[in-house]
Design a protein around this nucleic acid. Structure first.
Length: 719
DNA sequence: ACGGATGAAACC
DNA sequence: TGGTTTCAT
């Protein structure tokens, strides 16, 4: 059996792509008259001109900075154009930016594994693409190197006097006797240049990028030359780069940890870290952080680019600063209702477009309490199983809030004073949905694969665990959840081992998400313990117990549950639609980003990209390699882009025979420990990622020492 | 008691 | 776990 050799991080090709002042660009695309002008995006114009959350590079020249007030920015830059963030339900509405970010992700995910790091940042693992290019069309044989690639910044590349910078870059990119890893980076640079061009042509957004051998260095590099430029970090430049880099510039070291490094250890640059042994760092900062620090000092970062195009959670919140603090339950209820509506809408979209379901509802708040001894006590967060439908989320959120408020106030009696402010005020509220998992799709293939595998042992304890987890205890002091748990029928599944459980849906049940959400058949749809829980919570309430609020509107509930409002669907394009759009766009592959803007009349209406002259576009260069780009896209990011399959294309799938039906709807269980890892490689590619996610090793606990296993970390290489 | 809204992740 | 804290943009 082959020993898994940890691949040295040095031979990967990783890119970090960072949109330039993204919110500003979104607004400038919406209103092209703003292009080229000093512009900032501001929210809540009411107070001091609102707070800036994005500033164009033209405005930055005047010293305008994020977190400035609108009025403040006018003082240093009187001509500045301030654009307000859209407002919906009384709060800032960031949906247009989220959607714009999705546009970008859908383009960038076309090449290699892609991780959505934030609304405007993406990591790409371009190793495979770069390897392929190196093997089939290395830069040295290309007579014409993409203009945009020639404008790359290559760290450590000495600019010889008298010769053009681009000429130097060309030489570096095409150097025949270069280290193989440098050649891979060169290929990465070419690919990224093309991708950035593609993004620009399809979205009108510029971005900056860093290309390096790991995420940390790529992220560092992407911020070094902005806007609309890219930076390459060859292996040989790493030591010099980190040596003088202020410690606080490193991601994750911009806060307290970075300050501690400076104050407690006298570390001012990343290079200063080199003198400390790993043990020393671990002793002071813990096993994980210590090792991490020791590694980053050497430019080592083994973090993988996760193939994840969608957010792991959704949240909606609002602050109520100072005098606006909420002082009555009913005002809290009002705002919770707004936030929950917003959240519910986004959850429904996620379900419709991405076939994902969230399982946990979390409420956060901040509060002040005048005059008490422990008035600085934090307002506790509370969570509960998430039930779909705006009305239910609202109801649950309010219950969570009341439970938290009781705890905060130190009250353990049943009632909270209705509208009397007992010196408390809520200064912020937020609701969020987490534990989002894909609806079982492709599950049948997994089942088929594991068909015949029988659990080798039976553990009573694990069964007990499962039952217990299916009926989580209610938030403390909350009667409603007691009621739910008592009154609702418990779902018991005849399982022996419970590491992973599947209840496989029938086709017709998945065809209609009404069935999915409201189905009363315990054996239908939904995989694993958490989803069973979800289903249980989605069952209609037996009778009362939830009638606290007269505002609950049943039709509204149904509308949200069913998500049939077409306007909502149009508001947020799904990836599939974007993918289609992308394929229809053809552009010239040779124009540089600067040329793009030079030719663009700022005062004219936004240019329709589809009208750009057609030629063989940038994709030509990108799609080197045996497989088509759509193939590679799906392979790398399958878990995020719901691929059309038997469960999602009911029209194309025939009804299963009754025997198949019985087979598929059966409940399965198996222990992940019993899965032979080598067998995963033989799974269909689109299944592999899902299975690997179950088996992925967790981060070391603060007990095991580094070195207990050589596979635990990357050995330092030739840095 | 305005750096807001929103995420991710480590920690305990 | 769930809840808290940190960090980032």
């Amino acid at each position: 059996m082959p020993v898994a050799r940890p691949e040295t991080s040095d031979s990967r090709v990783i890119a970090h792509v960072d949109m330039d002042c993204f919110y500003v660009q979104v607004e400038q695309r919406k209103n092209p008259e703003l292009r080229g002008l000093p512009t900032a995006v501001v929210q809540y114009n009411s107070w001091q001109g609102g707070g800036l959350i994005a500033v164009s590079y033209e405005a930055r020249k005047y010293g305008v900075k994020r977190s400035m007030r609108g009025a403040e920015s006018k003082q240093v830059c009187p001509q500045i154009q301030l654009v307000q963030v859209p407002v919906a339900r009384g709060k800032a509405d960031l949906n247009s930016y989220r959607n714009a970010g999705s546009e970008v992700v859908s383009i960038l995910s076309g090449k290699g594994r892609c991780e959505r790091a934030s609304i405007d940042e993406v990591y790409l693992d371009l190793t495979d693409a770069a390897e392929t290019m190196l093997a089939e069309a290395p830069p040295e044989i290309l007579e014409a190197i993409e203009e945009e690639a020639l404008k790359s910044h290559v760290l450590g590349l000495d600019n010889e006097e008298g010769s053009e910078a681009k000429e130097n870059v060309r030489k570096w990119l095409c150097k025949t006797n270069a280290d193989r890893r440098d050649k891979l980076l060169a290929c990465g640079a070419l690919i990224v240049a093309e991708l950035r061009l593609l993004v620009l042509k399809e979205t009108e957004f510029t971005c900056s990028a860093g290309i390096a051998h790991n995420k940390m260095l790529a992220k560092l590099a992407s911020g070094m030359n902005k806007p609309a430029q890219q930076t390459v970090v060859p292996l040989s430049s790493v030591k010099g780069l980190l040596e003088s880099l202020p410690i606080k510039k490193m991601k994750q070291l911009g806060g307290k940890l970075g300050s501690s490094l400076q104050t407690d250890l006298g570390v001012n640059t990343v290079g200063d870290l080199l003198q400390f042994s790993e043990e020393k760092l671990q002793q002071r900062y813990g096993i994980n952080t210590g090792t991490w620090l020791w590694n980053i000092a050497r430019g080592i970062s083994g973090e993988e680019v996760e193939g994840r195009l969608l957010p792991k959670s959704h949240g909606s919140g609002k602050t109520f600063p100072g005098p606006q603090a909420l002082k009555t339950i009913s005002s809290v209820q009002h705002w919770l209702n707004e936030l929950c509506e917003d959240l519910s809408e986004r959850l429904q979209l996620d379900l419709d477009e991405n076939k994902r379901i969230a399982h946990t509802l979390v409420l956060h708040a901040n509060a002040y309490k005048a005059s008490d001894s422990d008035s600085q006590k934090k307002f506790p967060s509370k969570s509960c199983p998430l039930r779909y439908g705006a009305a239910k989320i609202q109801e649950d959120a309010l219950n969570l809030f009341q439970a938290a408020l009781r705890e905060y106030l130190g009250l353990f009696t049943a009632k909270i004073q209705g509208s009397q402010n007992n010196q408390w005020g809520i200064t912020s509220l937020s609701v969020s949905a987490s534990k989002i998992v894909p609806i079982p799709s492709g599950t049948a293939s997994i089942m088929k694969y594991f068909h015949g595998h029988q659990p080798s042992s039976s553990t009573k304890q694990s069964q007990d665990n499962f039952i217990e987890e299916s009926a989580p205890p209610p938030p403390s002091g909350n009667e409603n959840y007691l009621e739910l748990n008592v009154d609702k029928p418990q779902i018991e599944l005849p399982c022996e081992e419970t590491t992973i459980k599947y209840a496989v849906p029938s086709l017709h049940q998945l065809e209609d998400k009404n069935n999915l959400l409201n189905d009363q058949n315990p054996c239908s749809s939904l995989k694993n313990q958490a989803q069973d829980e979800f289903m249980r919570e989605s069952l209609p309430l037996p009778t009362s117990g939830s009638e606290h609020f007269s505002g609950v509107n049943e039709s509204q509930l149904m509308k949200n549950s069913c998500g049939e409002d077409p306007s909502v669907k149009l508001a947020m394009p799904g990836f599939r639609r974007l993918e289609q759009k992308r394929k229809t766009v053809k552009n010239k592959g040779t124009s540089s980003i600067l040329r793009f803007f030079k030719n663009q009349d700022p005062s004219s209406a936004p240019k329709k990209l589809e009208h750009v002259e057609n030629t063989e576009d940038a994709k030509t260069l990108l799609s080197v390699g045996p497989q088509s780009r759509s193939d590679s896209s799906l392979d790398h990011n399958q878990s995020e882009l719901p691929k059309a399959g038997p469960f999602e294309e009911p029209g194309t799938s025939s009804a299963p025979s009754s025997s198949q039906y019985e087979q598929r709807r059966g409940v399965w269980s198996f222990n992940t420990d019993e899965i032979d890892p080598s067998v995963i490689d033989e799974l269909p590619p689109e299944i592999q990622q899902e299975v690997r996610a179950w088996l992925r090793p967790h981060k070391r606990q603060n007990v095991a020492k580094r070195g207990s296993s050589i596979a635990d970390y990357f050995l330092p290489t030739s840095l």
